[in-house]
Amino acid sequence: MAEATPVRVFSRGVAQLISPNANVPAAEAPARNNSPAAAYARKQLVSRTGALAFKRGMISWYDENGVHMPATVLEIDLCQVVGHKTEEKHGYNAVQVGMGHRNKALQKMNKSKLGQFSAATVNPKQAVAEFRIRGKDGLLPITTEITASHFKVGQYVDVQATSKGKGFSGVMKRHGFSGLPASHGVSLKHRSGGTTGQNTDPGRVFPGRKMAGNMGNETVTLKNQKVLSVDEDTGIVIVKGMVPGSKGKIVKLSDARNMYGVAAHDVKSRLGPLVPE
């Protein structure tokens, strides 16, 4: 069978650089960017699991030069590997980690959940989370305890938690609007957001307009928080800066995935190994 010549449609009156009779070889298809493999390669993943911790509160911290900084005390209490997710079975590799203990609410937990802990031969955990990892080397054996020494002093971590709920709040609190003037004839509208749009045309409010609504109680991730102190005996990890959420709430700690937002003078010191030896 003869090779199929590419079909070229000749349209009269349109200027063409190539003669309609020329035999032009078909161009090679460029590499696809939207494949699952390409997406996986693009993803920022670390090779090892993180840990769960309780937020215990904030303290003042002095470094070796006497510089004062705010810091948050986190406690890792009985954090264990509870399960795995593998590429073959679930489509991605992840470590399931549980922390804490369910004592009072044990009866409220359904049997299927209790069965998972039973199969993993660990105590019923207060919280379970997944840490997606690159490759399979980081799939620690089930029941492995992740202690505070999993993290090293000087390394950077990403901290994820649910922020404090503020309820249904107005635009001044929620979006930082200025409100309306205090005087000059303004009545009962001092904390109002003002207008939400135009008139008959378009005759509707555009999507995305900032309005009053529920504030807080959402997942917040803080990136590149420095680890100041680690104590394996007590399970205490101290992280520089604030951590979202109230005291006693559960926090997800993992190695820093990206190091952007770093001041230029500090890049060199920050771009060292994420986990110092």
């Binding site: 209490d77 009985l78 802990f117 039973s118 031969t121 660990v122 105590n123 005996d233 007590t234 399970g235």
Partner: peptide
């Protein structure tokens, strides 16, 4: 239902 290890603190 497995019992927990004591809290470190």
């Amino acid at each position: 239902i497995y019992e927990r290890h004591p809290r470190r603190l």
